[in-house]
C-alpha cells in the first residue's frame, strides 16, 4: 500500500481499527460484528465529511494517488478483448501512452490513454505518464485507423504533461501535439474523452478533443501544473496551494466554466478505494454519451466537435 494522504489520516485510523477488531479472537462473533458495524458507519461518515470538502490541492493529491486506476486498469474493467497496438512507425514505441483496439459493450472501438506506473521500475518504463512526440504520433496513427474503419475513439487522460526533455524537443514535441489537435478536429467518428487523473496541459489536450469530455469527480485539468504556475507567477513553488486555487482546475470548476460535459461520481473516499465501482460508473456514462453521438451523421459529428471547441473562451465585445 502506498503512503496514505495526510488528510486521510482519520479514515486510515478507523480502517485500521476495523482490521484490528476482526483479528481479535477474544471477542464473540456477535460482539465483533456489532463493533465492526458501528465503526463502519463512523467510517462512512468521516469519509463523506473529508471527501465532500477537499481543497483543490487535496483533489490534486487524490488525482495523483498511486493506487488510482490507470488506463490499463480501466481497459481491463470496462472493455473486452483488448489488443494493444504499438509504435509510431517513425522512431519507437512510447510506453507513456497506450493504444489499442477493444470491444466496448460488444462493439469495436479504439482506446488511447496515458499510462503511469505504480513503482519506480514501471514509472521509468512509462516515463511517469509523460508522453514524447512518438507517443502523440502513435495516437495520430490510431486516429487515422479509427477514422478509416469508422470506429469510435475513447481516450483516457492522466498525465503531468508532455515530456519536457532535449530529445522530445529535437523530435518536435510542439509539432506532434499541434498535429494531433488538427487530426482530432478532422474526425468524423465519435470520440469520448475522460480525464481520469491529472489533465496536464498540452500533453493532456493532445488526446482530449472528444465530442464529449467527462471528468472523474476528483480529477484535475489545467493549462499548467500548480507547481509550475507558482514558480513563475509567485517565483516560489511552495505557493502551489494558492496556484491550485487560482487555476480553477477541479472537475467542479470546469463544469461551471462549461469546458466539460459531465462529472462522473467516484466511490466515497476516491476512485483508489474501489476500482470496480468507478469503472462501473464510468462505463455507464461513456455508453450513454457514445449512444447519443453515434446517432449523428459523420458530418454532424465533425460539426458538433468543431462548434464545441469553437465556442470556448470568455471575452467582451
Amino acid at each position: 500500500m502506498a503512503a496514505p494522504l495526510d488528510f486521510e489520516a482519520p479514515i486510515i485510523e478507523i480502517e485500521n481499527k476495523i482490521a484490528e477488531i476482526k483479528n481479535m479472537s477474544s471477542l464473540s462473533d456477535s460482539d465483533m460484528q456489532r463493533e465492526v458495524d458501528s465503526l463502519q458507519k463512523r467510517l462512512e461518515r468521516v469519509k463523506a465529511n473529508i471527501y465532500q470538502r477537499l481543497t483543490p490541492s487535496q483533489k490534486l493529491m487524490v488525482a495523483r494517488h498511486p493506487e488510482r486506476p490507470y488506463t490499463l486498469d480501466f481497459i481491463k474493467l470496462m472493455f473486452t478483448d483488448f489488443l494493444e497496438l504499438h509504435g509510431d512507425r517513425l522512431f519507437r514505441d512510447d510506453q507513456a501512452l497506450v493504444c489499442g483496439i477493444a470491444n466496448f459493450n460488444d462493439s469495436p472501438v479504439m482506446v488511447i490513454g496515458h499510462q503511469k506506473g505504480r513503482n519506480t521500475k514501471e514509472n521509468i518504463r512509462r516515463n511517469f505518464g509523460m508522453a514524447s512526440p512518438e507517443g502523440y504520433r502513435k495516437a495520430q496513427r490510431m486516429f487515422d485507423l479509427a477514422e478509416r474503419f469508422n470506429r469510435p475513439i475513447i481516450t483516457f487522460v492522466d498525465t503531468p504533461g508532455a515530456y519536457p526533455g532535449i530529445e522530445a524537443e529535437e523530435r518536435g514535441q510542439a509539432e506532434a501535439i499541434a498535429k494531433s489537435l488538427m487530426m482530432m478536429a478532422e474526425l468524423t467518428v465519435p470520440m469520448i474523452t475522460v480525464i481520469t487523473g491529472e489533465g496536464g496541459s498540452g500533453g493532456a489536450l493532445a488526446i482530449a478533443m472528444g465530442n464529449r469530455v467527462l471528468m472523474l469527480e476528483h480529477s484535475t485539468y489545467s493549462v499548467i501544473s500548480p507547481e509550475g504556475c507558482a514558480s513563475i507567477l509567485w517565483k516560489d513553488a511552495s505557493y502551489a496551494g494558492r496556484a491550485a486555487e487560482a487555476l480553477k482546475l477541479t472537475a467542479q470548476d470546469l463544469k461551471e466554466l462549461e469546458v466539460i460535459d459531465e462529472i462522473v461520481n467516484e466511490p466515497l473516499g476516491g476512485a483508489h478505494r474501489n476500482h470496480h465501482q468507478i469503472a462501473h460508473n464510468l462505463k455507464t456514462a461513456i455508453a450513454r454519451h457514445l449512444k447519443e453521438i453515434k446517432s449523428l451523421a459523420p458530418k454532424q459529428i465533425f460539426e458538433q466537435r468543431y462548434d464545441k471547441f469553437r465556442n470556448m473562451g470568455v471575452f467582451a465585445e
Partner: peptide, 18 residues
Amino acid sequence: ARMQESILSLMQMAKTSA
C-alpha cells in the same frame, strides 16, 4: 498559453487548430 485564464487558454489551442 495565458496562465490567468487557465483551462480557457488551453482550449484556444484546440480552437485555433480546428
